[in-house]
Simulated assay, not measured.
Amino acid sequence: MTEEAAARYRDLDLWPPREVLEALYEGQLRALAAVHRALPHLERAAREAAERLKGGGSLAYAGAGTSGRLAAMDGVELWPTFGFSRVRFLLAGGEAGLTRAVEEAEDREEEGFRLGQGLEAKDVLVAVAASGRTPFTLGALRGAKARGALTVALANNPGAPLLQEAHHPVLLDTGPEVIAGSTRLGAGTAQKAALNLFSTLVMVLLGRTYGNLMARMRVENAKLRARGAAMVRAMVGLGEEEAKALLARYPEPALAALAALGKTGEEAERLLEARGVRGALEEARR
């Protein structure tokens, strides 16, 4: 369906610019509605993914073209936002595919399979393809699944092979695009939103937030130091200067807060991985 040409937009190039924008905007709303329908599937996938990752596994992303770039965008943010570094990328065309179109790379199913075979049973693979039949992405999912990894698939076409083969299929039924076949529009919006929701819920379930605070974010510039100091104060009630001094020694608010409660860096890291931020603080206060 993502490749169909909708009759409604047949003469789009003759429309007034405002009407073109209205049509594109409506396409974005349909995309978000598709994500809302997929929330139960995203929840189930995130719950099982979090359980798998608690065993020390990696969260891997696979895709080609626009879908691959959106997947990579989601993954690279997990380290600065949540301090989660166990992220891998299985992208058609490799790093070159992030900045330019390497269209023929998406047809290399064998390469995708080989990369997927690099995962293990403790890992989670999120495979993203608007059509749900991209050979490279299918190969990556099949390779990862053969190795016992948990597989999550995001696709925009009902009945797509990617959805049929994944442990957790997530259909984002966005229908035909305003501009036929341009899945960077509605399908891409739905993918980006769904990836955001999935990965953020996984991080919350892994205990990498404190309430709604990014307590494990990496504090690496002036803006984040100020934000991080406020988080340390919220967690352990320190004064501003003391909180800033601790953040100068520890790279994330949760570590600084645990240091204020008498934990060494090594003890704090162990507690955070085992108990999450809230659990670690509760144990440190005992």
Rank of each mutant, 00 (worst) to 15 (best):
A23E: 02
E110H: 04
G93E: 02
L21I: 12
S131R: 09
P135G: 03
M203V: 04
D13H: 14
Q164D: 05
V126A: 02
E220A: 12
K54M: 11
R88P: 09
V124K: 08
A96W: 02
G94E: 01
G148C: 10
R218G: 01
Y61T: 00
M73R: 11
P40S: 01
L162S: 02
D74N: 12
A5E: 11
L163P: 05
R278F: 09
L39N: 01
A155G: 09
G276P: 06
V219Y: 08
R69H: 06
M231S: 00
L115I: 01
E4Q: 15
A180H: 10
G132V: 05
E241A: 13
A7G: 13
E111I: 12
V102N: 00
A49H: 06
M231T: 08
V126E: 00
R47N: 07
A7F: 03
A234P: 10
Y210G: 07
K263I: 05
A149L: 15
R30Y: 08
A140L: 07
R100A: 10
A187Q: 11
E103K: 04
R30L: 12
E266P: 10
T2L: 02
A284H: 12
L205E: 11
R275G: 00
P158V: 07
A31D: 06
V128H: 05
G262P: 09
L258E: 05
A38K: 04
R108Q: 09
A60F: 12
P17M: 07
T264V: 10
A280S: 15
T2Y: 00
R69C: 05
F89A: 02
A46N: 03
R86K: 14
A193D: 02
V277K: 04
G57D: 09
D123C: 01
A254T: 02
R285H: 03
L163S: 03
G27D: 02
R10L: 15
A226F: 08
A71E: 00
Q117R: 15
V20I: 15
A284T: 13
L42F: 09
M73K: 07
A5G: 04
A23Q: 08
A259T: 13
G97S: 08
K223E: 10
R249A: 10
S199F: 08
G75Y: 11
L70D: 00
T151R: 04
R86L: 13
G118C: 11
A153H: 09
T66S: 14
E111G: 14
L162V: 06
G207C: 10
L91V: 11
E19V: 10
E240V: 14
D13S: 15
E282D: 14
L42P: 05
V236H: 05
F198G: 00
G159E: 09
F89P: 07
A45S: 04
L138I: 12
L78M: 09
A257S: 14
W15G: 06
R142S: 09
E120G: 13
K263G: 00
Y61K: 07
H167L: 02
R286N: 08
V178H: 04
A46W: 10
A72N: 00
L201R: 01
A45H: 06
R184C: 11
E177Y: 14
L238Q: 03
G239K: 03
R18K: 12
R10V: 12
G68L: 14
L171N: 07
